[in-house]
Write a protein that binds this DNA or RNA. Structure first.
Length: 384
DNA sequence: TACACGTGGAT
DNA sequence: TATCCAAGTGT
């Protein structure tokens, strides 16, 4: 028996009793598949760089609304984005919508399970293609994600930082070998990820519960947590955002849509001015009046929002909008290329695709029903 | 290749 | 509190 066969066997034996009961693991109504391929694809895309606890409620809601590729393909992209609100990395929702269109057009509405066909779908890279092919159809397709890389690096005490290309290439080769040796590739793949997520964790791994402890070279060296070495991270750049929450007499609020692409691309927000430099009160007031605010517009508060690459210092101003005709004149005069704007009720606002920072803006301004999702909770930062 | 892309849990 | 980083992909 080869080392790979032994590892695969241990993983496959461990998984059934250790697997968390996640909703996408429970079913299948298609007896030809290990698991529903569409539900698996949706789960894998949501899980890209996103923790399981955040994905569970989102996956349940998304699958209730879009149970098949056809259901998503019939919807507008904006509905997919709205269903993604709060999950982050919104490009994933656009790409999944595009993938649904392709599945309908090129695969008769049936999610492919062949790795090559999967890989050709928008938003499906090498990892996701391998995961869906193996988990939904049992194909011997390799996968490497953060968990797999960590488990393999420790198992072989392989040096190198997490993002280092030679280490990643080595991990793919190891995964290929492992999955080729597995009797149930999908189970083996899910097991190694589950092991990384629940036992072989980045800090304080629970080696006493690990089925691979006996063959783990990093453990034998006495310091499994040193593998892989941490990867260097880019510094965050500061961004200043002035958000203006305007209400009309009937309680509707003014929203605008961000340009596609870039940060929060295509999502809705309060009228917002972004700047690399701080915006003083006089500048804020002048801009707010130009965007249609009445004379009573005033600062309501602020907060700091962190993303991977930015520290965004939000200041929120609010007040009443001026009357309709003057408002339109003011907008077009202010900026002929101004983004599309709409006045929406608080109920409509809740259905609009919007990032969590802008939900927070409306919440701070006292606009009810801004967040249809369970309470988001970046720490309540101090004023910028 | 290196970088941009969101959000929140874990420590 | 600050930092890490989580079932990656596209450009």
């Amino acid at each position: 028996m080869t080392a790979a066969q032994r590892t695969a066997g241990l993983l496959e034996g461990w998984f059934p009793s250790a697997a968390r009961p996640l909703p996408w693991r429970t079913n299948t109504h298609d007896p030809g598949q290990v698991r529903d391929a569409w539900g698996t694809l949706v789960a894998e895309v949501m899980l890209q760089q996103t923790q399981v606890s955040r994905v569970v409620p989102a996956w349940l809601a998304f699958m209730a609304r879009f149970p098949t590729p056809g259901a998503l393909a019939r919807a507008q992209e904006e509905e997919a984005l709205a269903a993604w609100s709060g999950l982050g990395y919104y490009r994933r929702a656009r790409l999944l919508h595009a993938a649904a269109l392709r599945i309908v057009a090129e695969h008769h509405g049936l999610t492919p399970t062949d790795p090559r066909a999967l890989r050709a779908l928008p938003g499906v890279g090498r990892y996701t293609a391998g995961a869906v092919a193996s988990i939904a159809a049992g194909a011997p397709a390799a996968i490497v994600d953060g968990n797999v890389l960590r488990v393999l690096a420790r198992l072989h005490a392989r040096p190198g930082a997490a993002g280092w290309a030679p280490l990643v290439r080595w991990a793919w080769a190891q995964s290929e070998r492992l999955v080729a040796a597995a009797s149930r590739p999908g189970v083996c793949n899910e097991a190694i990820m589950e092991l990384g997520a629940t036992v072989c964790t980045p800090a304080a791994p629970a080696c006493v519960r690990c089925p691979l402890a006996g063959q783990c070279r990093a453990r034998a060296l006495g310091a499994p947590e040193r593998f892989p070495a941490p990867k260097a991270r880019a510094a965050r750049t500061d961004l200043h955002a002035l958000a203006l929450v305007l209400r009309d007499a009937s309680g509707r609020v003014l929203c605008q849509r961000r340009a596609p692409g870039g940060l929060w691309g295509g999502l809705w927000q309060a009228a917002t001015l972004e700047s690399a430099a701080p915006i003083d009160d006089a500048g804020a007031h002048a801009w707010a009046r130009m965007r249609g605010a009445g004379a009573g517009v005033r600062p309501l508060g602020g907060f700091v929002w962190l993303t991977t690459h930015r520290r965004v210092r939000f200041r929120v101003w609010g007040g009443a909008g001026v009357c309709c005709l003057r408002r339109r004149a003011a907008q077009s005069a202010a900026s002929p290329a101004a983004p599309p704007t709409r006045w929406v009720s608080p109920a409509e606002l809740a259905q609009l695709p919007m990032g969590s920072a802008q939900r927070r803006v409306f919440e701070l301004a006292g606009v009810g029903a801004a967040d249809p999702r369970p309470a988001a909770a970046q720490p309540r930062g101090p004023l910028p």
